[in-house]
C-alpha cells in the first residue's frame, strides 16, 4: 500500500513539476517506510549483521530500480571486505574494484563524500582507467556510492549500481541516502564499540575477505623480493595485462601455475 502510494506520488511529481518539493514525506515517515520494507524482504532471514545488510541491499536495489547494491567495509587500495550484496553479480562488481585497485567505492572511503556517476561510459574512463572498462564489461553503466559515516568517521560504503545510464531524482537521492543512514545505524546498533576494545564478534562474520589474494600477495613478495604493497601492485598489473581476475591469478600463483616475471 505504502509502496503504491509512493510510486503514484513520484509519477505525479514528474508530470507536475510546479513544486515537487512539497510532495516529499517527512524524513521520519520515509525512514519507517524503508525500515518496514527491509524487514519484510524475503530470503536471507538470518539474524546476523551480514544478513541484515544483505536484506538492506536487496531492498535498496528493488526500491530504486537498480541492478544491485553492496556494502563494503573499510575499502582501501590494500584491503577491503564486501560484507553484503544484493546478488552475486554485484558482489563480483565490488570485488572487481579491489581487483583493479580503484573505483567509486574506494574513492568514497578516502574522500568521505558520495560519488555519483550517471553514465560510466561518458565520465568513467578518465577517472578510473582500470575500473571503467571492467565495469563496462560487467554491464555496469551507472554507479552511486555513498559513505556510511558519522561525523568524520567513515567505516564503509553503500554502492548502488545500474545496468543502464540514469540519474537520481531528488527524491531518489534522498531515499538512497536514507538507505546509507539505515546501514550505518545497523552497524552501529549491533556493536558495543568502545575505544580500545576489540571488534564485536557479531561484526567479524561481516568482514568477508578473499583470503587467497592475500596469500598470493605474501608469496609474490617472496618470489620477487619486493615489499607487500609492491607485490599486490605487480599482481594487479599482471592480471590487467593478461586480462584475468585478480582472484583467478591468485589461485594460479598459489598452485604454482603462474610465477610473475621478476625485474632484470
Amino acid at each position: 500500500m505504502t509502496v503504491l502510494l509512493a510510486a503514484t506520488r513520484l509519477d505525479l511529481g514528474s508530470d507536475d513539476i510546479s513544486d515537487p518539493g512539497t510532495t516529499d514525506p517527512p524524513d521520519d515517515a520515509e525512514r519507517v517506510r524503508l525500515q518496514r520494507l527491509i524487514n519484510g524482504m524475503a530470503d536471507a532471514s538470518g539474524d546476523g549483521i551480514a544478513d541484515a545488510l544483505e536484506r538492506l541491499c536487496r531492498c535498496a536495489a528493488q526500491e530504486l530500480g537498480l541492478a544491485g547494491a553492496a556494502v563494503t567495509l573499510v575499502p582501501t587500495a590494500g584491503a577491503h571486505a564486501v560484507s553484503a550484496a544484493s546478488n552475486p553479480a554485484t558482489r563480483q562488481h565490488e570485488e572487481e574494484q579491489f581487483g583493479v585497485g580503484e573505483g567509486p567505492t574506494q574513492d568514497v572511503y578516502s574522500s568521505h563524500r558520495p560519488v555519483l556517476v550517471s553514465d560510466l561510459e561518458v565520465t568513467g574512463a578518465g577517472r578510473w582507467p582500470g575500473y571503467a572498462p571492467a565495469a563496462s564489461a560487467a554491464g555496469v553503466r551507472a554507479v552511486f556510492a555513498l559513505p556510511l559515516q558519522v561525523g568524520a568517521a567513515t567505516f564503509g560504503v553503500l554502492t548502488l549500481s545500474g545496468d543502464v545510464p540514469r540519474t537520481f531524482t531528488r527524491a531518489e537521492l534522498r531515499t538512497a541516502l536514507m538507505f546509507a543512514e539505515l546501514a550505518t545505524e545497523m552497524l552501529m546498533d549491533n556493536s558495543a564499540a568502545e575505544p580500545g576494545l576489540g571488534l564485536d564478534p557479531a561484526h567479524h562474520e561481516a568482514m568477508a575477505i578473499h583470503g587467497q589474494i592475500y596469500q598470493a600477495q605474501g608469496m609474490t613478495m617472496v618470489d620477487l623480493g619486493v615489499s607487500l604493497p609492491e607485490a599486490l601492485a605487480r599482481m594487479r598489473a599482471h592480471a590487467f595485462a593478461t586480462e584475468q581476475d585478480l582472484a583467478d591469478l591468485a589461485t594460479d600463483i598459489i598452485a604454482g601455475r603462474t610465477v610473475l616475471p621478476a625485474d632484470h
Binding site: 568524520a152 564503509g156 556493536s191 564499540a193 568482514m207
Partner: peptide, 11 residues
C-alpha cells in the same frame, strides 16, 4: 561520533 570512530578503528 565517538562510537563511530571506535567502530571504524575496530573494523
Amino acid at each position: 561520533v565517538t562510537h563511530a570512530e571506535a567502530l571504524t578503528e575496530q573494523l
